[in-house]
């Protein structure tokens, strides 16, 4: 019982550290692609420390509660995803709960953004919802493919099943590729950073966020990166113990990063059409195969 409590406390901290490391790493790697040095890896930490000490403006109770709800939603989600050996809450909620908990963070940001009564924010939120509608189709197909293949909805069993013999990526290559194609859309990075497009709608949902709101949204973004990649590694690469899990996450993240550094930003209708065309077809074919065999 005590191990469970400790792991409940420790896992979010690990997720935070890894998330910040990935954020700092991504800015460093992109800077190197741009032929410049780029900030130190610990820059996100410095930013958060500064933002916490900076005052800000608030548009009302819901404006604060929405941001808190979105961060709390992400923290909970981390507890449901087994990271290496630690899987504190994985027994009291399975993959279906994860899909539904993924909903809390955008909903929280949408509510607090709506309260900010700024059209840039509303446009950002409507784009985020449409983008989510776009990438949910392939995401759900690939999840269903894994679930029908392993005949279970619990993530722990999926991971255990992959321990014994080959990883799921060899049995279900198409859903894995589909999931990887929509990873930038889920993380909201370059080809799909339509939601917080600074040049078009002045950084979308974060237009009215000041000091501490920005700190919470950065932390939430760090958790979000950790969650999406950990889910990918658990589903398709059979997450091993702590170290191998982290190495796999690093590989997946760097691959995603290199892709996003060389693409301009898509318009929202192009993004939806893209998500519904190639990744969706791949995942659908994978699902049909998983269903028949």
């Amino acid at each position: 019982m005590i191990i469970k409590v400790i792991s409940i406390i420790v896992l979010p901290l690990i997720a935070l550290i890894i998330g910040f490391f990935f954020l700092g790493l991504s800015r460093k790697v992109i800077a190197r692609i741009h032929r410049r040095y780029g900030p130190p890896i610990s820059q996100p930490l410095i930013d958060v420390i500064k933002l916490i000490n900076q005052e800000s403006i608030s548009h009302g109770k819901l404006f604060d509660m929405g941001v808190i709800l979105s961060l709390a939603g992400s923290v909970i989600l981390v507890l449901f995803i087994p990271f290496g050996g630690i899987a504190p809450l994985a027994t009291s909620g399975d993959l279906l709960v994860i899909i539904y908990l993924m909903l809390l963070a955008p909903l929280g940001v949408a509510l607090s953004g709506g309260e900010a009564a700024n059209p840039n924010v509303s446009i950002g939120i409507s784009r985020k919802m449409m983008l989510a509608l776009g990438y949910e189709v392939p995401f759900l197909f690939s999840l269903l493919a894994v679930m029908t293949w392993y005949k279970t909805t619990s993530l722990v069993e999926v991971v255990k099943a992959q321990q014994s013999f080959l990883w799921a990526i060899f049995y279900l290559p198409l859903p894995a590729v589909a999931y990887f194609m929509i990873l930038p859309a889920m993380l909201g990075i370059r080809p799909f950073d339509i939601v917080s497009a600074p040049q078009e709608i002045a950084s979308g949902t974060a237009v009215e966020y000041g000091g501490r709101y920005l700190a919470l949204t950065t932390i939430q973004h760090a958790f979000h990166i950790f969650i999406d990649i950990a889910l990918f590694v658990n589903l398709f690469l059979g997450g091993g113990n702590l170290l191998t899990f982290f190495v796999k996450m690093l590989v997946v993240f760097l691959l995603g990063l290199f892709i996003n550094a060389v693409f301009p930003r898509l318009r929202i209708d192009q993004a939806i059409k893209y998500c519904w065309k190639w990744p969706a077809i791949l995942a659908l074919v994978g699902l049909i195969i998983a269903r028949i065999i």
Partner: peptide
């Protein structure tokens, strides 16, 4: 009940971080 408990705990922790940092001006 586990989900509720964890949500409450996470909510309280985040609210603490939120209220400890610099105040914000109502607008």
């Amino acid at each position: 009940i586990n989900i509720l408990a964890v949500l409450l705990v996470a909510g309280i922790v985040v609210y603490l971080i939120f209220s400890l940092s610099a105040k914000s001006r109502r607008v």
